[in-house]
């Protein structure tokens, strides 16, 4: 299978294809990282501005998604260095957005708590694997750590989540109603 960028030669074509391919996963990852939809949207937009400016640096389409996530993480760190997190006034948040902010049933809440109480160094690679579908090699590149380190962190993250869930006696099948 062809992996070079010979197919979409035009940068604009490539950019639009990248948006189509990556923006949903990236927004979800951003929402998880920022815990706020407006900030998530802003950081993703800043990320794509950076991508447009540097799109000539992209050589392999297979690594495009990991490249986008790496740029996002840099932008996220840069923005959050300067910006104090905004406190949400719950009364002003439209009701349809609340479900994106809070888990609205008990089981989701417990799962959310299990994930959010994990240290970032553990939850980050797990979320990249689950949302982004990245391999351990790709996660190692995105996080700039070694592959064994990624494996260890994901291993511990899953173990911790399972332990939290089993303590809470959650039947996982009940969560999705199946």
């Amino acid at each position: 299978m062809q992996t070079s960028l010979e197919a979409p030669q035009n940068n604009k074509v490539l950019f639009n294809s990248l948006v189509d391919l990556v923006s949903t996963d990236l927004y979800r990852y951003a929402f998880w990282a920022c815990q706020d939809n407006q900030t998530a949207e802003d950081v993703v937009q800043e990320t794509f501005i950076k991508i447009w400016k540097n799109i000539h640096q992209l050589r392999e389409i297979d690594s495009a998604k990991a490249w986008v996530f790496t740029i996002f993480r840099r932008e996220h760190a840069r923005i959050f260095e300067k910006k104090a997190p905004t406190l949400l006034d719950i009364d002003t948040v439209p009701e349809d957005q609340l479900k994106n902010i809070y888990a609205t049933d008990t089981t989701r809440h417990l799962l959310n708590t299990a994930l959010n109480t994990l240290p970032n160094e553990y939850s980050d690679p797990l979320v990249l694997q689950i949302i982004g579908g990245f391999s351990c090699d790709e996660i190692a590149k995105i996080l700039d750590i070694s592959k064994p380190n990624v494996l260890t962190r994901i291993f511990r993250a899953r173990k911790k989540i399972r332990s939290t869930l089993s303590t809470s006696k959650i039947e996982l099948d009940d969560i999705c109603g199946l």
């Binding site: 990852y29 989701r108 799962l111 979320v127 949302i131």
Partner: peptide, 10 residues
């Protein structure tokens, strides 16, 4: 389940 939890609406 985690995937579903994180799959917020774009």
């Amino acid at each position: 389940q985690v995937n579903r939890l994180l799959a917020v609406e774009v």
